[in-house]
């Protein structure tokens, strides 16, 4: 019995993670994307800002301190590849 208790704990942890990890609903509006170039050279370059490849689908997006540099976008629609579709509406998130 004691032997299998470890396995039981592993299964319990697997169940807990299945219930607590947020599941993404891609291709519909309301997704959040983090800007990969935040804090890097060229972060404010418009061609980088408007390139969907520079964004990663995250859940949730964390931009706690408002500022002037883009850290991601929220309320965006996925383009089907894990990047935001900038032809649809989205909200820019900024931070220091």
């Amino acid at each position: 019995m004691k032997k299998f208790f470890g396995i039981l704990v592993v299964m319990l942890a697997l169940t807990a993670s299945a219930f607590t990890v947020p599941h993404k609903n891609a291709t519909v509006a309301g997704n959040e994307y983090s800007y990969n170039l935040y804090g890097q050279p060229g972060q404010d370059n418009p061609s980088n800002l408007n390139n969907p490849a520079n964004y990663t689908l995250v859940n949730p997006l964390s931009c706690p301190i408002p500022g002037s540099h883009r850290c991601g976008v929220s309320n965006a629609t996925d383009d089907g590849t894990g990047h935001p579709d900038f032809t649809k509406s989205y909200t820019i998130r900024l931070r220091n």
Binding site: S34, T56, L57
Partner: peptide, 8 residues
């Protein structure tokens, strides 16, 4: 499970 968020 949420690898993209973790990597980001």
């Amino acid at each position: 499970l949420d690898h993209s968020s973790f990597e980001a």
